[in-house]
Design a protein around this nucleic acid. Structure first.
Length: 745
DNA sequence: AGACTGTTGTT
DNA sequence: ACAACAGTC
């Protein structure tokens, strides 16, 4: 047990004991205090939704029981400030080290950096790890060392990296609890134990210890470890001397939510060992047919791993390795379909990687388009549309079935997510952030990075995203993904008796057919809220409009008369509708075609800004004011994948960062790094070049106080790239800011 | 037959 | 935007 005090392992979205580098490091270093801090207010508008909280609750309980069987427990803290809660735990336990795994969403980058700074200032050694990705975002660059702008190039690079992702770590065999009992106490209690649980408990009580968990097998299995384990599972209830670190009870659901949540347990089993089972089931079952089945909307052909992956119940590296093993064996058998299926499945894993990559490189991508060319798109601000979409009453059966399933189960097949979100953006022309927020509130696997990537893709604001002027037709998609109409019939009982021929376009069905099916369009099932033709025309108008606005803005800027419309638009974002609750009784949204209100301002979820401002204030001591144009998380040049560089060993124990020293302050980013090479013995022995384990350096993005609004503009125009859109609409290119391209090198 | 139109897949 | 494909005239 080196270093005296115990280690704190801070769990976040890595709720597993297997292949958890932070936990492994803690166990290796000695006694461990496992902590989870529940501070949802820190997430601002991204306060987790009901089903997401339900999952978290069960996942934490699962983790706690796993930790208990290993010899410790999960300390839970309710907080509005994770970092100060961590500090409290440090003080209460006398811990000398903190370990945690990286996250890549903008709020976490800021918070984790602050945690690191504060704890280091308290003399705590902090080390952080990669547990969430195959490769850290800063490891994957093009030949010039710049980050990729398109998924295909990114993923190709990932698959051809010179070194493989780390192999998954085994779970610890035993964890020595850092809720430290003094040896004398332990011995005393052990001596006092006479094989009778009651008397043991009495002794415990006398000593102001409360037995909170006890498993007799510990005692009889092995006398030495039995002592340790008994000790480990006792927490002091006395607020006095040795351990002042009781858990808070975390509340994840209110009374009104319990009923709805009860259904979830029938379909889902949170927790890392269930995630493992889901993975095994998938690999041995649907995986081989994955390619063939990918068109089917309803079906257990997907992995169903997304919520498990979101909470880190299973590591992506484990998924990757196991799937790859299958692929090799199928390839050897000449099973082309299996081989192809693995490639496709891995691609979806790659998209998840890419979402973190994008979030890290463009920290505002969850709230601001990556391409600025839609800045003047006249979004339709119509809460009636929004409500009809949420309730599954758009009149397009496939869309409505999807939205009903989402509400009922918190889950949607990826194809259907594309269908409903594309409909949202292209047909209804609602601001995409509304849709993203609704997904956030309702999806079991709500994931800021993945969802932002998905919605930006759909909205055409990625260099390789869908074209804005392309409208998918839910009728055709219906026959493609749900050829027999089973999916629609399951979720739209009112259409259940409609023949397949009309199931995806009931508005074309003869009156007699509708009558026979008991359907009265406009009454018990709506007519299409917008016809596809009308949507196409309206989209064309909107785009023309957008180009005019854009030209006007450009002219104004060139004349120097105006700052441009861009700034004012950013100042007045489209507010997210307050009342987003799904009404239980569906009022048919009929006969009152919503009046269309166009809004030129780019949409914004306003409270997000608030939360950032708050963080900025807290961060303002950090001396990293910066240029507006640089919003990419910079990785210092000396962070290199090549292990031959032997970086910064001297800072090992403090986890302090080199950049400050090398007198070459980065414009915007601090480097907060666990420079952990303590474990090199395992990792670096191979002769091939390897990256540093444990991430080496963690660049952390710090928002600046002064230049927030400038950044908005800067970043929004940020990605100048040879996207197809720009080639077709070169006028958009005029307002692109390409400066950043050259400066990342 | 060959041009034309429309759809799909592309994160 | 582009390629691949299907269906139409």
């Amino acid at each position: 047990m080196s270093g005296g005090g115990c280690s704190i392992v801070w769990f976040r979205r890595d709720l597993r004991v297997e292949d958890n580098p932070a936990l492994a490091a803690g166990v290796r270093a000695g006694a461990v205090v496992a902590v989870f801090v529940w501070a949802p207010e820190e997430e601002g508008p991204y306060y987790p939704g009901r089903v997401s909280r339900w999952w978290l609750k069960h996942s934490l309980a699962h983790l706690d029981s796993s930790l208990r069987s290993l010899g410790t427990c999960l300390i839970t803290k309710r907080s509005t400030d994770s970092v100060s809660s961590l500090l409290e735990v440090v003080k209460a336990t006398g811990a000398t080290q903190l370990f945690f795994n990286h996250l890549y969403d903008p709020l976490s980058l800021v918070r984790d950096h602050r945690a690191k700074e504060l704890l280091i200032a308290q003399g705590i050694a902090v080390r952080t790890f990669n547990a969430d990705l195959l490769y850290e975002p800063w490891e994957v660059n093009d030949a010039q060392g710049r980050p990729f702008m398109t998924f295909a190039a990114f993923w190709e690079r990932c698959l051809s990296m010179p070194y493989d992702p780390d192999s998954p770590l085994l779970p610890p065999k035993r964890i020595i609890s850092g809720l430290c009992l003094k040896h004398s106490f332990t011995a005393c209690m052990w001596e006092g134990y006479n094989g009778n649980l009651t008397s043991f408990a009495k002794i415990s009580n006398d000593a102001h210890w409360e037995l909170i968990y006890f498993h007799p097998s510990y005692i009889f299995s092995d006398s030495t470890s039995g002592v340790a384990n008994i000790a480990a599972n006792i927490v002091c209830s006395h607020s006095g001397d040795i351990c002042r670190c009781p858990s808070d009870t975390l509340v994840f659901e209110d009374e009104s939510e319990k009923g709805s949540n009860a259904l979830l347990a029938r379909a889902w089993s949170p927790g890392w060992s269930n995630a493992d089972k889901a993975l095994t089931t998938f690999i041995n079952g649907p995986l081989i047919e994955y390619s063939k089945n990918r068109r089917k909307a309803d079906s257990a052909t997907t992995s169903l791993l997304s919520p498990h992956l979101h909470f880190g119940e299973v590591s992506v590296r484990k998924v990757f390795h196991l799937v790859r093993i299958k692929q090799v064996s199928w390839a050897n058998e000449g099973n082309k379909a299996g081989d192809e299926s693995v490639n496709l499945f891995l691609k979806s894993i790659g998209l998840r990687e890419y979402s973190r990559y994008m979030s890290f490189n463009h920290p505002y991508s969850h709230e601001r388009p990556l391409l600025g060319h839609l800045k003047f798109f006249p979004w339709v601000v119509d809460e009636g549309y929004f409500k009809a979409w949420r309730q599954g009453r758009t009149g397009y059966p496939l869309v409505d079935a999807g939205m009903r399933e989402l509400w009922a189960t918190g889950w949607l097949h990826d194809r259907i997510r594309v269908v409903v979100s594309s409909f949202f953006v292209k047909v209804l022309q609602l601001p995409w952030r509304w849709g993203m927020k609704y997904f956030w509130d309702t999806l079991l696997d709500a994931d800021l990075e993945s969802d932002a990537l998905g919605w930006q893709y759909i909205s055409g604001t990625l260099p390789d995203g869908r074209e804005i002027d392309r409208i998918d037709n839910p009728q055709f998609e219906g026959y493609k993904f749900d050829p027999n109409g089973e999916y629609v019939r399951r979720w739209l009982p009112e259409l259940a008796r409609l023949p397949t021929e009309w199931i995806h376009h009931p508005w074309n069905a003869p009156e007699s057919v509708l009558q026979a099916a008991g359907i009265e369009l406009g009454s018990n099932y709506p007519l299409p809220i917008v016809s596809i033709d009308a949507a196409k025309a309206r989209l064309q108008e909107a785009l023309t409009d957008m180009w005019q606005q854009e030209a006007a803005s450009r002219a104004a800027i060139e004349n120097g008369t105006e700052e441009g419309l861009g700034d004012s638009s950013e100042a007045a974002p489209i507010a997210f509708p307050e009342d987003i609750q799904m009404e239980e009784n569906h009022e048919p949204a009929r006969n009152n075609p919503p009046t269309t209100i166009r809004c030129y301002e780019d949409q914004m979820v306003p409270s997000m800004t608030t939360s950032l401002v708050r963080v900025e204030e807290e961060e303002s001591s950090s001396d990293l004011r910066n240029s507006a144009e640089n919003s990419r998380a910079e990785v210092p040049r000396n962070v290199n994948v090549n292990v031959n560089q032997e970086p910064r060993r001297d800072t090992l124990n403090q986890g302090v960062l080199p950049t400050v020293r090398d007198n070459n302050p980065l414009p915007q980013f601090n480097i907060a790094g666990g420079l952990g090479n303590a474990e090199d013995s395992t990792a670096e022995s191979s002769s091939t070049s390897r990256r540093e384990r444990d991430g080496g350096v963690v660049p952390v993005w710090s928002p600046s106080t002064s230049s927030y609004s400038e950044q908005l503009v800067g970043d929004e125009n940020g990605i100048g790239t040879s996207s197809s859109y720009l080639q077709r609409h070169p006028q958009s290119h005029q307002i692109m800011n390409c400066r950043r391209l050259s400066q990342t090198g």
